[in-house]
Design a protein around this nucleic acid. Structure first.
Lengths: 290, 290
DNA sequence: TTGGAAGCATAAATACCTGTTATGATAAGT
DNA sequence: ACTTATCATAACAGGTATTTATGCTTCCAA
């Protein structure tokens, strides 16, 4: 049987007064109420806590122990309430941000270091995955908020567009048989699990751009690097391409997939001051970023 | 208002099930009961803990935190209950033994080292004072039990005689003017706060033994040592005298005060297994000790 | 020795809180 | 569109805690 915090409090007071009647006064209750509170505690502890006498009460060994521990227990109990309240009202706590690694590479620099510096009690865990998975994680409470590409709408989700990007073919200045659109030896380089890349590829096929060979990687930076080296025609978001190699050039007539990079979070996320601050901070720094 | 332990436990279960109805089954209660329990928690925490949906419930950040803290809190309580129960049923715990330092010197050897060795989870704090004070301490719960001399009766007190002793005059083999009963220069050596010594002294006066000089010390071993060196006639318990110097001799015709060395404890002390073991152990080893 | 005071225990009544049952509302799945 | 699953709500029943009044015992003082 579990005790109740009220009874513990009473017991601590009783231990100070060593007198039920006086303790009752101090607690603003009646003496029989304390008699019964002690009885409840004694049942739940399975042993007697007080030795009653005509000159008041004395604690047994078990009673003394209970008092000692009760202080701790009550402190913990109160902390339970006050700490969570603190988390709501102050900019502190541990939050999880989901973000695609490639997006991370060119966005985090713009806000994260300063944010952590500004609020020293803030702790952030990054989680990397495909935007689609991140969005799911936000919806299902696995991560607190995310920076994702083209999130699907969902009733629980708040979506805030930060900036746009384009996924298209890129090629390097250095001409090779592998990156010559006319060549038969040309190589397609893409990240196959990226829907945008698939879409661009499909559209390019309809435009008559057919590849005999392809090279895939799950890492966009690797794709950019290979493209830069003339290993083929890479399908890349502009920002990833430019970040890796500013001389990379968009392919003429390449089909384009419009990307929208968004901040997403659940409707109920903004309850804490920290959450409001972080979303505002991120929006201010990334919105309309070039 | 602090939340109630029962509700906390329910909430932990809810957090596992993420579904009120199923959690209710597992807890053997009804779903509306949980709805209300969560409401109570939310009011006492001042913020929402669950996000309700048709596919169950999800914890908010505050909810997740509450679960974490609740687990700790509940564990702490259960530990408290089980530890105190253990203290009652096993030979362990911390106990305070009151004993006059001089009595300690010739009794502890006979039981304490072995006792500590036999029960490694037993912890003993020794408190030294006059027997009278020790007895008071036992009555008023300051110490758990005591080995005292001539305890006064008290309704709460159990008194178990261990052995007897005699307080009387001692003198050394070496004859000096200070310890010659006939001499005018003889010196009385005693511990003034020891009632027995006072009594012996008073009786000796009636017998015509008058001292012009006296030497007092609050330490019986010091008195024994001085007596042994021929510094005077010392009033000592036999055992203290013999222990310090086996050649010390009782003075012929000295008045005698009969000491009874007893084990004392409160009636309610024997509730724990450790207490029963210790009292039995001490009685066995010290009873009838010579 | 007796009467009063101080202390805790007990009992009955009341007030409060909690859980139950029945039902509603709503979203998701078929 | 119908069914099912889920949580919310309301009214009622039951239990638990508190209060008030009283009893019992011990201590102390007259």
């Amino acid at each position: 049987m579990l005790p109740n915090a009220h009874d513990l409090r009473s017991f601590v007071e009783i231990s100070k007064a060593e007198n039920l009647s006086r303790a009752a006064e101090r607690l603003g209750t009646s003496q029989p109420a304390l008699t019964q509170a002690v009885k409840r505690l004694e049942t739940s502890m399975g042993q007697s806590l007080l030795v009653r006498s005509k000159s008041g009460v004395k604690l047994t060994r078990a009673g003394q122990r209970l008092v000692r521990e009760s202080r701790e227990l009550l402190a913990k109990w109160e902390q339970l309430v006050s700490e969570t309240a603190r988390d709501e009202n102050e900019i502190r706590g541990r939050y999880t941000l989901g973000i695609h690694p490639s997006v991370a590479l060119y966005t985090l620099d713009h806000f994260l270091p300063e944010l952590l510096q500004a609020y020293s009690e803030l702790q952030i865990d990054l989680v990397h995955d495909l935007s689609r998975k991140i969005t799911e994680s936000v919806i299902s409470f696995q991560v607190d908020f995310g920076i994702v590409v083209n999130p699907a709408q969902h009733p629980d989700l708040v979506i805030l567009e930060l900036f746009k990007d384009e996924v298209r073919f890129f090629t390097s200045k250095k001409k090779t048989p592998m990156n010559d659109p006319q060549s038969n030896e040309k190589v397609l380089i893409l990240e196959p699990s990226l829907n945008q890349a698939q879409d661009v590829y499909n559209k390019s096929q309809k435009k008559g751009l057919n590849f005999k060979r392809s090279l895939s990687s799950s890492n966009l930076e690797v794709i950019a690097r290979l493209t830069s080296n003339g290993a083929g025609l890479g399908i890349l978001p502009s920002r990833v391409a430019k970040k890796e190699d500013p001389t990379l050039m968009p392919l003429e007539n390449s089909p384009v997939f419009k990307d929208s990079i968004c901040l997403v979070y659940r409707h109920d996320f903004l309850k804490s001051e920290a959450a409001r601050t972080m979303t505002k901070w991120i929006a201010e720094r990334l919105k309309g970023m070039k």
